[in-house]
Each structure stands twice: as structure tokens, then as C-alpha cells.
């Protein structure tokens, strides 16, 4: 169930101890985890245990500082990448097909949408990334507002940007968008119209720097 870090040459005792404590005390709630020694720690928790994990982290592990909560849409963009410069298309020809399948990031994932939250323990100075899967048919998760009131606005943002429901949130009004806006802009299948209407010109910085330039090129 665990994918260990590829190169554990740096020992990271603090994070390992934290991971140990979290996995042993939360049991099955932690589905998967990922540790980059010296950098960061990710845990993926079960959807229905999200609130429980939040309470545990705040009360038992003293993760009192709430940093943010957001979501990730792992669907590869159906509009293609539509951003490669002419010069790079040849290099990238292979990767186009590869990108078609959905790949989740650290700590894995089974669903298209994932919740991503980050909390800090100010005593040890460690941050912890918490992920949770959101199943496509329920599209919902329990709210953290009861534990971290600051999650309220972040959940509203995730709600309007991804269409994720948060059970237990007092009012999931749109935070940014006007009331009659349709769609969830940060979903990958929401087109960025400006890009579709006017395709990307490509990497502009492909011409050589003056020092690298050939005299022949300058003459022509």
C-alpha cells in the first residue's frame, strides 16, 4: 500500500516519526502515504474519514495551523495541451498519447478529483499534506469548517471551482463567480476560451541570444 521514497539517502527522523504515529493511530483511515525526506510528507486518507483525520491532526498531533484546502482534477486536459511551440512538437510527439491516461500524483489516488489540504504543526515546524479521494458520483466530502473555521472560504472556492460538495458547510455560496455563472472553471474539461480562440504562439524565447547568434543569420 505504501510507495516509499525513491532515494532515502537523507534521513528525516521527524517526518518518519510523524508518519509512524499517524499511520498507526489512524489505522485504515490512511490509505497511502508518501515521504520526500527533508522536503515534505503526503498522506491520502479515506473520504469518509476526512473529518476524523482533521480532528485527530488538530487535537492529538497539534497541527493547529491551517494553511489551505483545495482540489486537484487529475483528468488530462481534453483540449490537448495546445501550448507546444512548433519547435517542440517533434520532441513531444510521444508524450501526447501518454498524457491521455489519468495519473495521480504522490500518495496515489483512484478518482478524478482529489482534495488537497495542508496543515502545520508550529511546535515541530512540520507541514503535512492531506489528500482525499472524491468519487465521481458522490462528488462530496465532509467539511473541515468545524475543525478549522478557516477552511470555510477554501471550501467555497473548491465548491465553485471544481463542483465538489462539502457536507456540513454552513453556506456554499459562490465566492468569486457571479451568481449565474455555469460550470466549474478549474476542471480540466472547462475550456479556457482565450486559448481556444487564439492558440498559443509557442515559446517566444526560441531565437538565439545575441551572443550565440551566427554572423550569417544576422546578415540574412
Amino acid at each position: 500500500m505504501t510507495d516509499t521514497a525513491e532515494a532515502p539517502e537523507v534521513a528525516d527522523e521527524a517526518r518518519e516519526a510523524l508518519l509512524e504515529a499517524v499511520t498507526s493511530e489512524l489505522g485504515d483511515a490512511v490509505v497511502q502515504h508518501h515521504l520526500l525526506p527533508g522536503k515534505d510528507l503526503w498522506i491520502r486518507v479515506a473520504n469518509d474519514a476526512f473529518t476524523e483525520v482533521g480532528e485527530y491532526l488538530k487535537d492529538r498531533q497539534r497541527f493547529r495551523y491551517f494553511s489551505y484546502l483545495s482540489a486537484i482534477d487529475w483528468l488530462p486536459s481534453p483540449f490537448g495541451r495546445s501550448h507546444e511551440a512548433m519547435a517542440d512538437e517533434a520532441d513531444d510527439a510521444g508524450s501526447e498519447e501518454e498524457a491521455e491516461e489519468m495519473v495521480s500524483g504522490y500518495a496515489g489516488g483512484d478518482t478524478r478529483f482529489q482534495i488537497l489540504a495542508r496543515v502545520y504543526n508550529l511546535t515541530t515546524g512540520l507541514g503535512l499534506n492531506v489528500k482525499a479521494d472524491i468519487s465521481d458520483d458522490a462528488m462530496s466530502i465532509s467539511s473541515w469548517t468545524g475543525i478549522y473555521p478557516g477552511a470555510s472560504w477554501h471550501e467555497r472556492e473548491a465548491h465553485e471551482m471544481f463542483g465538489i460538495g462539502f457536507s456540513g458547510h454552513p453556506n456554499l455560496d459562490a465566492l468569486y463567480l457571479p451568481g449565474d455563472f455555469e460550470g466549474n472553471p478549474l476542471r480540466k474539461d472547462f475550456p479556457l476560451l482565450a486559448r481556444l480562440v487564439k492558440p498559443w504562439p509557442g515559446i517566444v524565447d526560441v531565437e538565439l541570444m545575441p551572443s550565440d547568434e551566427n554572423p550569417e543569420d544576422q546578415a540574412s
Partner: peptide, 15 residues
């Protein structure tokens, strides 16, 4: 790739 897949911007004033 050349572009980020997703960037979450955690800005201070929002919180």
C-alpha cells in the same frame, strides 16, 4: 511538461 499541470496559489490575504 512545459507547463504546470496544476498550481494552487496559497495567498496570505485570502486566509
Amino acid at each position: 511538461g512545459l507547463t504546470p499541470f496544476r498550481v494552487k496559489i496559497r495567498s496570505a490575504s485570502f486566509n
